[in-house]
């Protein structure tokens, strides 16, 4: 199936990427090229095949319920968390006002 420019704009909106009409037009062709190519996967008989869940046999480990045991995974590092913020405000991240 092929996608039109309206679909391109809808995807761009979902992905929060602003695109111009010219970009949407160019992308329509590129995406259709790629999607047309990946559609050959439909030929594969996958009856009874489970989707891949873990590529290498391994099981999910769980962490202990301990606060700040490791500074790399714990809190209490506001300065580090805010160090690269475009608009830090009194210990908060500032964003354009959101109207609910």
């Amino acid at each position: 199936m092929s996608i039109d420019q309206a679909t391109v704009r809808k995807i761009a909106s979902l992905a929060r990427i602003a695109i111009s009409d010219a970009e949407a037009a160019a992308m329509e062709g590129e995406l259709n090229g790629i999607l047309g190519w990946v559609e050959q996967l439909g030929e594969v008989d996958v009856t009874g095949v489970e989707p891949m869940t873990a590529v290498i046999p391994n099981h999910l480990r769980l962490r202990d319920d301990v606060v700040d045991a490791d500074p790399l995974t714990g809190g209490n590092r506001r300065d580090d968390v805010l160090a690269n913020a475009p608009a830090p405000q009194h210990g908060f991240f500032g964003v354009p006002k959101v109207i609910e």
Binding site: V38, L41, G42, V44, V46, V49, E50, P51, M52
Partner: peptide, 10 residues
């Protein structure tokens, strides 16, 4: 579908 094909490739 792609993840099923991935299973087949593995």
């Amino acid at each position: 579908q792609a993840q099923k094909v991935r299973t087949l490739i593995a």
